[in-house]
Design a protein around this nucleic acid. Structure first.
Lengths: 300, 300
DNA sequence: ACAACTTACGCCTCACGTAATGATA
DNA sequence: TATCATTACGTGAGGCGTAAGTTGT
């Protein structure tokens, strides 16, 4: 497979013109044109049709776009790994965590670990649990810390996972809300307006799942934020109800700005997991970090 | 990025020797050697260390292996799409389904669809729900039919999903089993020996999840098969209990070879979903297939 | 006519092979 | 001394640019 021509093809495809592609790639128009035509000839295919002055993708051409994007993305990852090696010759540890992890668990671990291994560079990224797994999968992170979602991450043979922490989700409202500290049914609570994070958040997924299992109508998401902190602030402000990690809600519940809603018969346990590549594929300081974290947990 | 040298590097890495790589690639030893050394020089990195007669990967080299495998796999997919285009000029529809789908739903749909669109080639593959999503993701399938697992597949912006069918899982035993047609608690049923499919099967994942939510010990899997049919036959033979789709178990329950176990307070609803790429990325016959399936479902 | 893409042709880089040399068990 | 990898060097395929040709608005 001629990788080079694929890039040329891709740029022509997304710009819709050989001329524009040549400007971006700093290669002459005829060179690109010739490459693509030759590629078409060799493979007995047609990638573009000429509609007047425009280059229009054939169905086959269209079909190649998305796989090629993934292909180039993986190539970029390889390049990134090589470049990172220069930037961080002593070791580079990229941790991706959901908000719960990066705001509560990781800060302490990271700073303690850094004291023992000052030469290791540590980068921490926050996204939702879905994004965290994506990052691990795409080699954009070495360690992923995320909520639950036992599937499909736990099945792949490439990663290992350890349960770090057991937690549960709770329904919370402002302390002025009529449901504050009340016991209500699942149906009642679900008819309220919700404040939730974006899709891909583990708590939101869980809530949706609960509704599906019980054949209850999906929650009305009155407000949606990209961060759980923002969600909590909005709930405190008085509008609606949310479903968040108990660990995260605890300080607010203790100080009385948030109140619990006891919902009958809802199992809301979840766990915080740490996922990473198998030993054979790790650098040595990765193993140090894992054993360090496990030791920290056993101390508590 | 020099894609070519990455392949050379990869072959040397997995064979552990330039000589062996040169044999596989049909390129001379010096040529490969020179390429890799040049690549190392250009990027100021070291990929191999010479330990006696062996070529041993450096930590950086090790780190590149797995991303490269993904990278090449995506490249192969691109090539496959081009080759498929020759083999099936009229259209090629690759359906990946779990056993439930490929044994019960798809056979009827596929044959009816083929009658209306005889020119479209249809390939059907059976794996577990996890494998099905992998195939869709890796461009090895155009349509995925799978059980439930709302996460993370439903979150990606690339795919669309439709719910096809609502079903539930049931605990089944042979008709001679003491639990046959009895009502028992979840804890009781989970202390029995189970016959289940491999990891990645949606029913198994659900069962594990149920145990986690209730803090009940994970099931003892006494026998494990790669197919659900085999599981059912083993249960009929008298050993243990299983947790399977009601749709699949129905014929056996009707004829009396299997018996239901009513387990208190367990929500076992699940759905069969169809996932596929968004419209912009489809060929025309894909849309035909989707509307065809939805029509079939509404007829029933 | 102009603004695209294509064809024609010569140049030059770079990956290749052959042959010789170096290292290690 | 046999078996690896590396160095040295000549060769050829192929991607490039320039310039001329073609097509559609």
């Amino acid at each position: 497979m001629n990788y080079h021509v694929l890039k040329l093809f891709y740029y022509v495809a997304i710009t819709g013109s050989v001329t524009k592609a040549s400007e971006r790639l700093h290669i002459s128009q005829p060179a690109i044109s010739a490459q693509i035509r030759k590629f078409e000839r060799e493979n007995h295919i047609l990638l573009f049709e000429i509609k007047g002055k425009r280059m229009v993708l054939t169905p086959l051409g269209k079909r190649l776009i998305e796989p090629l994007e993934k292909f180039f993305a993986m190539g970029d990852q390889v390049q990134q790994i090589i470049e990172d090696y220069h930037k961080f010759p002593e070791g580079n540890l990229r941790i991706a965590g959901n908000y719960l992890a990066t705001s509560i668990l990781i800060p302490r671990w990271a700073s303690l670990f850094k004291q023992s291994f000052p030469e290791v560079n540590i980068q921490i990224t926050t996204t939702n649990s879905h994004g965290v797994m994506e990052k691990l999968n795409n080699f954009e992170a070495d360690v992923a810390i995320y909520s639950d979602m036992e599937f499909p991450s736990h099945n792949t043979g490439v990663f290992e996972h350890r349960e770090l922490y057991r937690d549960e989700y709770v329904f919370v409202v402002s302390s002025q809300h009529p449901y504050a500290n009340q016991q209500v049914s699942f149906e009642e609570v679900m008819s309220e307006a919700f404040i939730m994070r974006e899709e891909g958040s583990a708590a939101r997924e869980r809530l949706v799942r609960l509704c599906e299992e019980r054949s209850v109508q999906q929650p009305t998401i009155g407000l949606q934020f990209n961060g759980v902190n923002e969600v909590i602030q909005a709930v405190i402000a008085g509008y609606g109800i949310s479903y968040v990690s108990a660990l995260l809600a605890k300080p607010y519940l203790d100080q009385g700005t948030l109140a619990n809603v006891a919902v009958e018969n809802v199992v809301s346990k979840h766990s915080i997991w740490m996922g990473y590549r198998k030993k054979e594929l790790q650098e040595s300081y990765m193993q140090s970090f894992i054993t360090f974290v496990m030791k920290q947990l056993s101390l508590k």
